[in-house]
């Protein structure tokens, strides 16, 4: 898979796609959606779609595609190569969401959670297929979380298409298995060849599976934490594992929208009855306060 565009800039999102098979613009198609790398604290999350004409579904099944989790890395690689060979009737497209995009979305002023990000990415990929002229008739989606609400949401967006959202769809529908293979191949390759934006010293390439409960991943996080900057952008700062390491091993950072504990400026109620006059600090004119200017007569 050619991920050179991602390797050039992995701070945002990156779309990759196969050419659209001509037959998919003529015949009604079935389209599968799946994701890879949702749970890990390291690396990108990849969303993929795979589609083929309904009449050729048996040919896709004949490739013996299966849920990517049940396949070894080399088997996934081999199956992806086969799908590429069958490019006259199988098409795919994927979105690589960089860990930086995931962090900045989830930690935004207006929180954009992983579910919304996932749903919007999936919708974007279906829309892309439609824009390319693919005659999408049926969509199958794998899901984590309750499938009913997600199905309703997707169905509303694509009224002319029959949408099926199901847990473990990647094991049930070959077109979803094929999408899961595309996503997993891209995620594995992206993680393996990750181009660190930062200039890190004695970078350790052994980061384990990237899952928060992997001791290797945890050890890697502890090794590469910087007291001021936290982690390299390869890390999802919004993950609890990352946050708790930062709490103990890095400096505190307060933002203008940080939650503050107690309200300052309110004295204890007893202070109103005490005899000593309340000392009021002499404040500069509002002009200076608004500009953050302080007099420098005393240094």
């Amino acid at each position: 898979m050619d991920l050179s565009e991602l390797e050039r800039d992995n701070t945002g999102r990156c779309r990759l796609n196969s050419p659209v098979p001509a037959v998919c613009r003529k015949e009604p198609c079935v389209l599968g959606i799946d994701e890879a790398g949702r749970g890990p604290v390291l690396g990108p999350m990849v969303y993929a779609i795979c589609y083929c004409p309904l009449t050729r579904l048996a040919d896709l099944e004949a490739l013996k595609v299966a849920d990517s989790k049940t396949l070894s890395e080399s088997e996934r690689f081999r199956l992806f190569a086969k799908m590429e060979e069958d490019g006259d009737f199988v098409g795919w497209a994927l979105d690589v969401l960089s860990p930086n995009l995931i962090s900045t979305s989830m930690l935004g002023r207006v929180k954009y959670n992983l579910n919304s990000l996932s749903h919007d990415t999936a919708t974007g990929l279906v829309r892309y297929a439609l824009d390319q002229g693919v005659k999408v008739a049926q969509v199958f989606v794998d899901t984590v979380g309750p499938p009913e609400t997600y199905q309703k949401w997707l169905q509303q967006r694509f009224p002319g298409i029959e949408v099926t959202v199901k847990a473990k769809a990647d094991a049930l529908f070959p077109v979803v298995s094929a999408a899961s293979i595309c996503a997993k191949v891209a995620r594995d390759q992206a993680v393996k060849n990750w181009q660190f934006v930062e200039k890190l010293r004695d970078l350790d390439a052994d980061y384990g599976s990237g899952y928060p409960n992997d001791p290797k991943t945890k050890a890697w996080l502890r090794k590469h934490v910087d007291p001021v900057f936290g982690f390299p952008q390869f890390v999802r700062f919004s993950w609890r594992t990352a946050q708790s390491i930062l709490e103990t091993e890095a400096e505190d950072v307060t933002w203008e929208d940080s939650q503050t504990g107690d309200q300052e400026g309110l004295g204890r109620i007893k202070s109103y009855f005490s005899e000593s006059p309340r000392t009021r600090p002499h404040l500069p004119h509002r002009y200076f306060q608004e500009r953050g200017l302080e007099s420098a007569t005393t240094l």
Partner: peptide, 9 residues
Amino acid sequence: LEVSFRGRS
């Protein structure tokens, strides 16, 4: 210009 610091944009 764009950058991120501590996971914030």
